[in-house]
Nucleic acid binder design. Structure first.
Length: 566
RNA sequence: GGCAGGGUAGCUCAGAGGCCAGAGCAGGGGACUCAUAAGCCCUUGGUCGGCGGUUCGAAUCCGCCCCCUGCUACCA
């Protein structure tokens, strides 16, 4: 009864691919992106690792694409320099926030180029890619075709004279650059002219029915993801051009296309596969990636923000179907958006909390906690600094951190800094308390496996609350003077609950869970101990604890709010 | 315009045909004092966006309307 119990909701040893959105390497990641994809992916990966499953968590910098080029030209530098600079900020953010990638690479690697070109070639051979003509704007002075963002002109909808070719910032309408009135090139003072250009197209229309048959039975997908995808398929997918007249990107592996590149939306999703191969090669087992990509035992989860859903539920699956042999996604647990103080995050208005800034000023676990509690799994949610301070102080500090602190300081003071011995038979409420922790492993596991992380965290925190209640009922601070054995039992049980909670919370709060684990007298890495309550045995010396979390002052709210939008 | 999601207590959000609609916080009261004055107990508070319908019974299903958000695919 005093031992631990292990949940067995699914066989250990399963291969889990945790595929996470590739951030565009032209700005640092902000809090919304963290909450939307990186944090949920990390929680999911950490849990599965503890369960003994074989996790491969990959992503990388999306180093190609027009915004990287635009930024490079604006700064008078190269696209390489731009993406490498932001790649470094990504790595710092993952380290600072504990986002535990097995590999975070980039699309600018020889491996990725080879894998992307292989995908292109096979789809071309199978006639899922074909060549066609497209009318695009051409700058006769610069001697090149212009991406939509390189064209400016008068908006055909609202008449704003400074609309970009892809979208008008004034009225928000999107358009084809050919629709602009009085177009002008951003590369020269020339007037762009429409010209025919040859491009390759992905035959998405050929996959419409197969995709529909595949998506229809995915009832474990989030309703918003499945419904949205079925809506796209009902309207019918259109073939899309997958090449552009650019020099920065993956070259087309055919003669005579030196001035064209694969377009990022086609090429970047291949990164999941190329990163898996790169990871395998780096371990000295180049074929090891197959375990996550072939066979019914492996499962692939693609963590995304909602804006990326079409790419992961239609385009990438279509590419995989066309390519053959590889597994399709098991789930695409896309999140909605986290808004900042009521408004959508926006780079141009600087309405965002940039993660490098956060990491420089604050601790990782409180933000991981707050963003998990607010995770926009069903609808958009709103982040405010007031809510951050409130949840930190009332929930992390008061409910969980204080539980750890009160139990350990009381025990050390009264029982010679060691875990006290309980009587041979535990009181019913003590047994019930231990059973509650052990039962929580099953419950939290079920929520995480269903990618319902908010509920998972809530279930774990519910145990902390039950433990505070248990302490209050047993009042060991009183019992220690009248009935020492009674107090010993209470504190022994409470320390074991803390040990279990440290593990339950580890996927969410990896930094402080490791500390709480050590406070229980355990040595080594909490993750290695597995998804189960590690028993704390009587007599174990207890190190001196310190508070796991800082209580935050309300002044922080105003300080941080004032940084938004300026 | 089209498509999707949402409008539930002062605030942030759960619930998706059936006991008197829930949680946390905020507000009110209480017992305790080990702990970062934290924890625990009790409690005030809602015509579940509006109107109609289906049903023995509807936040929960259907229709219409109002409002918010996102997407609308060469932004990825």
């Amino acid at each position: 009864m005093l031992g631990s119990t292990a949940p067995d909701s699914e066989a250990a040893g399963r291969h889990i691919l945790v595929a996470v959105a590739w951030p565009y390497a032209n700005s640092p990641v902000h809090m919304g992106q963290l909450a939307g994809a990186y944090l949920p992916a990390d929680i999911f990966a950490r849990y599965h690792r503890m369960r003994g499953n074989r996790v491969l968590m990959v992503s990388g910098s999306d180093s190609h694409g027009t915004p990287v080029t635009v930024r490079a030209e604006a700064e008078g530098t190269t696209p390489e320099e731009v993406y490498q600079r932001f790649h470094r900020t990504f790595l710092e953010t993952w380290a600072g926030m504990g986002i535990s990638f097995d590999l975070f690479t980039s699309t600018d690697t020889p491996n990725h180029v080879a894998v992307a070109q292989d995908m292109f070639r096979r789809l071309l051979e199978r006639d899922f890619i074909y060549e066609g003509e497209q009318t695009l704007l051409y700058d006769p002075k610069a001697g090149r075709f212009l991406p939509d963002r390189y064209v400016e002109g008068t908006c055909p909808f609202c008449g704003d004279p400074n609309a970009r070719g892809d979208q008008c910032d004034n009225c928000g309408r999107t358009m084809d650059a050919l629709e602009l009135k009085n177009p002008r090139s951003r590369l020269s003072d020339a007037t762009p002219e429409p010209r025919q250009s040859k491009h390759f197209f992905l035959r998405l229309s050929a996959f419409n029915e197969r995709l529909r048959e595949w998506v229809e039975p995915q009832t474990h997908w989030r309703p918003a993801v499945r419904n949205f995808t079925l809506g796209l398929l009902r309207e019918g997918l259109h073939d899309r051009a997958i090449t552009r007249d650019l020099s920065w990107g993956v070259p087309i592996p055919l003669e005579g296309y030196d001035e064209k590149r694969l377009y990022v939306w086609f090429e970047a999703v291949i990164g999941y596969l190329s990163a898996s191969k790169e990871w395998a090669a780096s371990t000295g087992a180049p074929e090891a990636w197959r375990a996550w990509w072939e066979g019914a035992e492996a499962r692939q989860y693609y963590f995304q923000g909602k804006d990326n859903v079409p790419f992961h539920t239609t385009i990438w699956p279509a590419m995989v179907m066309g390519y053959g042999e590889l597994n399709l996604p098991y789930d695409v647990p896309a999140n909605q958006y986290v808004t900042m103080s009521g408004s959508k995050a926006s780079s141009s208005r600087n309405w965002a909390v940039w993660m490098p800034d956060y990491v420089a000023r604050h601790d990782p676990d409180p933000l991981r906690y707050v963003l998990t509690a607010l995770m926009p799994e069903t609808s958009d949610s709103d982040f405010t600094w007031a809510e951050y301070v409130r949840r930190n102080n009332d929930e992390l500090v008061a409910r969980w951190g204080n539980l750890v602190n009160r139990v350990l300081t009381m025990t050390r003071r009264n029982f010679e800094e060691r875990v006290p011995a309980p009587p041979s038979t535990l009181a019913p409420e003590s047994q019930a308390m231990l059973e509650a922790v052990d039962a929580a492993f099953e419950e939290v596991a079920g929520h995480i496996e269903a990618v319902q992380l908010r509920n998972a965290l809530g279930a774990a925190m519910g145990v902390a609350q039950a433990a505070n209640r248990y302490l209050d009922e047993r009042a060991p601070w009183t019992a220690v003077r009248s009935d020492r054995d009674h107090a010993a039992e209470t504190l022994y049980v409470a320390i074991n609950v803390v040990s279990g909670l440290a593990t339950l919370l580890q996927p969410f709060l990896p930094f402080t869970s490791q500390e709480a684990w050590a406070f229980c007298g355990h040595a080594g890495d909490i993750q290695a101990a597995g998804w189960t309550r590690t028993p704390v045995t009587p007599g174990t010396p207890l190190p001196e604890p310190h508070p796991l979390y800082k209580k935050l002052d309300d002044a922080l709210i105003e300080d941080e709010e004032s940084r938004l939008g300026r």
